[in-house]
Structure formats: structure tokens, C-alpha cells
Design a protein around this nucleic acid. Structure first.
Length: 275
DNA sequence: GCCCAGGGAATCG
DNA sequence: CGATTCCATGGG
């Protein structure tokens, strides 16, 4: 990875298999804003990070190489060779085509607790409104620092209760959010254990939470814990499976990085609709 | 007014 | 088991 420090900003010239904008737009994270076609603002790793697309490469504002390497190289999963992972899918023509359209996507390594609550909020919901509810939740119960609200702790959410969450207008999901907070607090669900116990046990443990089924749990395992074999099936991926695989698809044949193929397919199917 | 949104729980046969 | 229905809310 080639870093060039420009005053307070950091330039990265690598563009192959790295597009932070597409990575934000593929539905894996929700705390970001598109400022223009050439600038996004992302809240991650406890700070706001503004990112610009320039003729020379990706420019990250107000950050040192040291901080970027410590926080955002892991967050953007930049030490993984996505090119070789894409090659591993070459037997599948649909995934290969999707990867050509979406090959800059990286799987963000997000905070497990934030990811859990975010995808509980995502159920039967649309992305703009998911973003709005999460923003409201952080403003309501997070702590402000340098103009950025932290993600609320399990304790603060449990204390607020479903009634206390009313201002964020999450609807029927409020009781699920509170159940997640309570189960994390009382140890029914231990996120450190989920991180370590392996895919099958981790899936079962997350599903102990009300409002967490197969889809939400797989998103949390993929985006919050780095279980790359997780293959969440939502309405968009269902459409891919119906359109390109006659409704029959077994993700386990894709191997340990099936979840990366899933992101390409999700982005690809949504891009087909836009045109 | 209708339908849908990165679903899941509850309740049926 | 599989199939329905309901759940809050907002945008198209």
C-alpha cells in the first residue's frame, strides 16, 4: 500500500479492488453521507473520516498515515487480497460479472455491537430510513465528541427501554433493540464469545436475540465479526438467485469467502435496477 | 390509497 | 413442517 502524506491529508493511489464509495453504498454500513459524487463522509473507528476521489487516487482528509494504518487499514480490510478471492469465484459466471461491476467493494470490519443493532433496525426497512434511525439513536443516547456522536452502549439502551427509544421512530423494532441490549448486558449473548466460537455456534447465539433471524445474524457475522463465509439472503439476493440460478443456490460451494461474493451480487442486482 | 423496504415472530393448518 | 399475517414508519 502506497501512502503519500499531503499536509494533513493522506493519499492512497491503489484503486484496484478498493473503492470506499462503493463499499459504503453496498448496504453494509449506515453511518456515512454522500456529500457529492467525489466526496463521502464516514463515521467509523470513533471519528469522522472525509474521503475524496481525485485524479491521483483516494484522498483521506485530516488523518495521518499512522492513524490510518492503525484504524482504517483493518476497517477497510486492506491487507486482504481481494483479487485472488475474485479469482476463486471464476467458475461462476454471474459472480464474475458482478465482481466486474463491484470489484472495489471491501467488507468493512465494523464494531460488533453497532453492527448488531444496525441490522436489527434494518429488518423490513429501507436504507435511507435505516440511516436516519441510527443517526437519531446516536444523537439521542450517544456521547458527543468533536461533533460526532458515539454509538450508544448496551447499558444506555437498556436504561432507556422501548419507551425511551420512541423518539427515534424505529417502530416495532424498539423492543428488539432493547432485548439485544439486555441479553448482552446479562451475558446471555457474549459478543467476545461470538467472535471466537466459530460460525455455527455464533449464528445460534446471535439468534437468541428477539428480532434476530438468519438474515440479520449473517449480516452481523459478516460485517461485525469477519465471518466471511456468512451469506445473508435478503430480498435483493433472493432476486439474484431467482434471476440467475433458477431459485436454487447453495452458498457453501463458494467456500470461506462466500460473503464477499454475496456483496458483489447484492450491489450488482441493485445496479441493474437503477439503469 | 397502495406498495415496498438488506425480516422475523406468532399463529395457524 | 410450510404458509399467512402482523408488525411501525416513511417514501415513491
Amino acid at each position: 500500500m502506497n501512502f503519500i502524506q499531503r499536509d494533513n491529508n493522506l493519499l492512497i493511489t491503489q484503486s484496484e479492488n478498493f473503492n470506499p464509495f462503493d463499499s459504503c453504498e453496498c448496504g453494509q454500513c449506515f453511518r456515512f453521507n454522500k456529500i457529492s459524487d467525489n466526496e463521502y463522509s464516514l463515521i467509523a473507528c470513533g471519528r469522522r473520516l472525509n474521503m475524496q476521489k481525485t485524479a491521483e487516487g483516494w484522498l483521506f482528509l485530516d488523518i495521518t498515515e499512522e492513524e490510518f494504518c492503525k484504524s482504517f487499514v483493518p476497517y477497510f480490510d486492506l491487507n486482504r487480497d481481494y483479487g485472488s478471492i475474485i479469482k476463486s469465484f471464476s467458475a461462476d459466471k454471474t459472480i464474475t460479472r458482478a465482481a466486474e461491476a463491484a470489484g472495489g467493494i471491501r467488507i468493512f470490519r465494523q464494531d460488533p455491537w453497532e453492527t448488531l443493532i444496525s441490522f436489527i433496525i434494518s429488518q423490513n426497512n429501507n436504507i435511507p430510513r435505516i440511516k436516519k434511525i441510527i443517526e437519531s439513536l446516536c444523537a439521542l443516547l450517544g456521547e458527543e465528541k468533536n461533533g460526532v456522536y458515539s454509538f450508544p452502549t448496551p447499558q444506555s439502551i437498556a436504561t432507556a427501554g422501548a419507551e425511551g427509544l420512541a423518539p427515534i421512530k424505529s417502530g416495532f423494532r424498539a423492543k428488539y433493540i432493547v432485548d439485544a441490549a439486555e441479553k448482552v448486558l446479562n451475558g446471555t449473548v457474549d459478543l467476545n464469545r461470538v467472535a471466537a466460537e466459530g460460525y455455527d455456534a455464533a449464528l445460534a447465539e446471535l439468534k437468541l436475540i428477539k428480532g434476530v433471524g438468519d438474515k440479520v445474524a449473517n449480516c452481523v457475522l459478516l460485517f461485525g465479526f469477519g465471518y466471511y463465509q456468512a451469506f445473508p439472503i435478503d430480498v435483493w439476493v433472493k432476486r439474484v438467485i431467482d434471476n440467475f440460478y433458477n431459485g436454487d443456490f447453495d452458498p457453501t460451494i463458494l467456500g470461506e469467502y462466500a460473503g464477499i461474493a454475496q456483496q458483489y451480487l447484492f450491489y450488482y442486482q441493485r445496479s441493474l435496477l437503477k439503469d
